[in-house]
Design a protein around this nucleic acid. Sequence first.
DNA 1: GTTATATAATCAGCTTAACTGATTAATTTA
DNA 2: TAAATTAATCAGTTAAGCTGATTATATAAC
Lengths: 139, 139
Amino acid sequence: MNKWNQSYGFLFGKVLQQMENKFAEGLVGFQINARQYGVLLYIQENPYCSQKEISDKLQIDRTTMVSHIDHLENLGYVERTKNPNDRRSYSLLITEKGNEILSSRWEYLTDIESEVLAPLDQQEKQLLKNFLNKVWKSI
Amino acid sequence: MNKWNQSYGFLFGKVLQQMENKFAEGLVGFQINARQYGVLLYIQENPYCSQKEISDKLQIDRTTMVSHIDHLENLGYVERTKNPNDRRSYSLLITEKGNEILSSRWEYLTDIESEVLAPLDQQEKQLLKNFLNKVWKSI
DNA sequence: GTTATATAATCAGCTTAACTGATTAATTTA
DNA sequence: TAAATTAATCAGTTAAGCTGATTATATAAC
């Protein structure tokens, strides 16, 4: 047992890298990357949100968010309309096309996650998810 | 419970982001980043390794590795000598100065990891580490 | 109610890391 | 020995994060 295997950070990093690489393969053809999938998912679950809100919640830089939304809008996955209550911000909505992409790739995502986590049994996976959610809620 | 909290990938990503950001603060003044700390740790634990070996094991691009090692060498944390058995490759060794950085920052690293994982009790943290190691070994 | 401050989105410019493809030197295979 | 492979390197491209500035709008202070 060396220090590498003793650091949560390095272990998290390597497991995540596996998942991201595999997920990226499944997104080829949809012209978006894993981060943009995450943004799209956020918009689906939080309709009428602003770019600022996504930046804060997902901790993605505000200026990077501009290009993500530009890209998703150009592909027809997201609609920008001015928020009538605060015309500084946009009201973002997912389109029907965006919804289709999301559900089509959701199953793929859960498949590759199971693949990477294959060494864990069902109970261990459930525990892991609980742990991660506990930590995430505290952030 | 929404989809965000159902994806291991997104949860891993957010927890890792917290750890990396906090760890980065502690590395200011040592002129290296978290990845380079990882590389240095690998060299300490695998003396006489080559750049190729680190690239493969840590899954860091070979061309990026050149600049990481350049940087670590310039700072005097690592020594490059030609491997006498295969003069195409280098034999990398950590210096005394490199060893000092590693131990000085190791305690800091484990502290911030505990901070981020504070919502978990001791037993849960141990389980989490076991799970991660099981998965990492299978990669 | 006007002035000052704060905020959302955007743009330009910089930095870092990943990646591709090519080159050089050394090693291994045919 | 000739051909193929490999480790390290370099040049150039792409993507994401960051800083700082600008514009339009909203809120707070006086």
